[in-house]
Write a protein that binds this DNA or RNA. Structure first.
Lengths: 108, 108
DNA sequence: TGGCAGTACTGCGCAAACCACAGTAGTGTG
DNA sequence: CACACTACTGTGGTTTGCGCAGTACTGCCA
């Protein structure tokens, strides 16, 4: 992965972070991201990201019945996903540091 | 501008930051961004961003002849650009903080 | 003189990301 | 039985960043 990816795909990291804490299903991940501060994230974006990460082999998935609505498709990190998470987190941290120094020098 | 923009358009902020320090022309902005740590930024992206920001009314532009090659099209921030820069910088800072807390809790 | 490297910019077309919106389907309430 | 809430899928659109090709100007060197 080149750092091109993170100029865009920040959502991947956010979703991985949320799932690293504990498994979750789509609707739940949306709520947790919004509570964490990403208030304007669209639901379709999250579902799309989950499908993409699953397709990339980073997540496992299992269906659980629910009392309060339709079944829930849970997702969780597997080994690949944990490695991906660690990698993305590192890349993002250094990218954020770069941006911070760039912006600070211009002193806002 | 909704914060959708900064999930992508981080380059806008980077270019604004570089130009806030001092005026620059395309090729020069590319070099300064790369020196600052954004090593993989494509030249076409920067030129595109400059044109976009100019079209959005954030930059002024003037042409200067050069001894070592073709003319140079300099860009600099105007009032709109400075306001935009301050605004983007704030939005990005809070976004970065949000991401940092998300990633930290999952403890990488 | 011709060719090549370096500087500086433009234009085209692509892939990916995020989103809005619409649709499907299950459960519980009045 | 309509309606609200939960939960997911699919479609199409806009924007971004990029690779690549092309233009053009200068200076160097054989």
């Amino acid at each position: 992965m080149d750092s091109t990816q993170l100029l865009k795909g920040v959502l991947d990291l956010a979703v991985l972070a949320v799932l690293a804490e504990r498994d979750g299903y789509g609707y739940d991940v949306v709520r947790r991201l919004r509570e964490a501060g990403l208030e304007e994230v669209g639901d379709a974006s999250v579902y799309g990201t989950l499908r993409r990460l699953f397709k990339a082999g980073a997540l496992n998935s299992y269906v659980v019945a629910s009392d309060e609505g339709p079944h829930r498709k849970y997702y969780g990190l597997n080994d690949t996903g944990r490695r991906m998470y660690a990698s993305y987190a590192g890349i993002w941290a250094s990218f954020a540091a770069t941006m911070a120094s760039l912006v600070k020098e211009g002193h806002a």
